[in-house]
Design a protein around this nucleic acid. Structure first.
Lengths: 129, 129
DNA sequence: ATGGACCTTAAAGTACACTTTAATGCAACA
DNA sequence: TGTTGCATTAAAGTGTACTTTAAGGTCCAT
């Protein structure tokens, strides 16, 4: 299936600007053009974009995605390097998860503390009447 | 215990600049000064800073931390509002965790794929000799 | 009393990832 | 034929969170 930028943007859930920006930044070097010079996105473009979106949600830098693209262009000999980029990012993701767990328990105890204050405050207000 | 900025920065694991910046941004309104105008951090300052660091690792905006500070200044009547800020952030944290899990499985399968390519490539190289 | 380590402020600069603006052009439809 | 809707490009602007720079003050040891 081949679609234009607006439809691709809707499917992927990004503004069309951002797709152009990604192309400009070297993340989408395979996008073809139609006879008017308009971008055409095919299935594999969309799959790659979905991966971009998924990894961007975990804050992978655009530079690493660009590096993957560059290495892919060079062929199978770069598979190890590409794997290393993803493994490095996987480490960061695991650290982020630990950070989330730490913060989670701290924020829970803060919420409990605010509950206490709130209860006391409301009781006091009640007794004022 | 009362310590100066350098020691506080070391304890907390942030550059001293950043502590000054946080004060300027209204995140540290309780920091006292000594007779020369130098900042003095006490235990409760450090506890609050630790919480800041912990939550910043989960990308809480400075604006929300500032909001907490402002509400705290206003007293117990704002406990509910403070709780709501933290609960909103807790929701974001949970979403981030889901994003990490999604990306994790995608990146794992990519790594597996690169392993395959690498194996094939090395076998081919071996057969060339 | 001079050098070094610490502190201060204000302001400008940086990194990253968009986002917006402006100027333009094609193509189909009333 | 004109206007609506989509597309294009280049360049400037934005938001967030620092980070760096510049200029200076204070304390202490040699």
């Amino acid at each position: 299936m081949e679609i234009h930028i607006k439809e691709a943007a809707e499917k992927i859930g990004l503004p069309a600007h951002t797709l152009r920006y990604y192309e400009q930044e070297g993340l989408l070097p395979f996008i073809k053009r139609d006879e008017n010079g308009n971008r055409i996105f095919n299935d594999s473009d969309l799959l790659w974009l979905e991966l971009i979106v998924c990894l961007r949600k975990t804050d992978i830098p655009l530079s690493e995605l660009r590096a993957i693209v560059e290495l892919t262009k060079e062929g199978d000999s770069t598979a190890l390097q590409r794997k290393e980029i993803f493994e490095k990012h996987k480490e960061k993701m695991m650290e982020k998860k630990r950070d989330l767990d730490d913060a989670f328990s701290k924020i829970e105890s803060k919420i409990g503390y605010y509950d206490e204050i709130e209860k006391k405050y409301n009781k006091q207000k009640f007794n004022e009447n």
